[in-house]
Design a protein around this nucleic acid. Sequence first.
DNA 1: CCCTGATTCGC
DNA 2: GCGAATCAGG
Length: 210
Amino acid sequence: MSWTEERIERLKSMWAEGATASEIAEKLGGVSRNAVIGKAHRLGLEARPSPVKPGEEHAAPASKPAKAEAAPKPVAEKPQPAAREPAPQPQRQRPQVEGVQYRSVGPGGFIRQGPGDQQAPIPPAPPRRLVPAKPSPEVADKTSLLDLNDRICKWPMGHPGEPDFHFCGEQANPGYPYCVAHCGVAYQAQLPRRDRRPPPPLPFGGPRVR
DNA sequence: CCCTGATTCGC
DNA sequence: GCGAATCAGG
């Protein structure tokens, strides 16, 4: 289907009336939404309000510092030594009752919830105060998850789960989550379509096509 | 996912 | 010039 004089006029009038490209394409018939948009542009028709913002420079971080950074949450206030311990029960033995139930005991001496328990069993007072675990020596001087902020390069080193997994920790490239060197790895200039490598075929022939 | 218009670029 | 493919926001 070609763009005859008559069809172009219909396109112009409908475009001027505010019909969407899809509607115009449907009423004209024989052309796609993209064809209508492409033709409208070539005809120099008035641009429609695009859902994609035109300007808005990417580099404008200082424009709206309104709620850029929430104030650092008051990380869990140090638990005051109030109510140190809930009155230690002198009762040492478990009450021997018929149908006694055995429960497993988790780290810190807390009794795990049983499958049939209606409410959590009252945990016994932990024998000692719980303290944060010391970092393993492998990551002692390395950047951990808790060290991250927006000025620190978050490039992962190694893999999660490995004992020495940590983060790069260099000074981040302002506005980016990584340092300059890792930004160079993370962000690649987009090549023209003809120069792009097609993705390699998936192993085993890829997903099954029905 | 759906929709939208804008843009690119092989033909 | 055409329009599919792609992009990017709603």
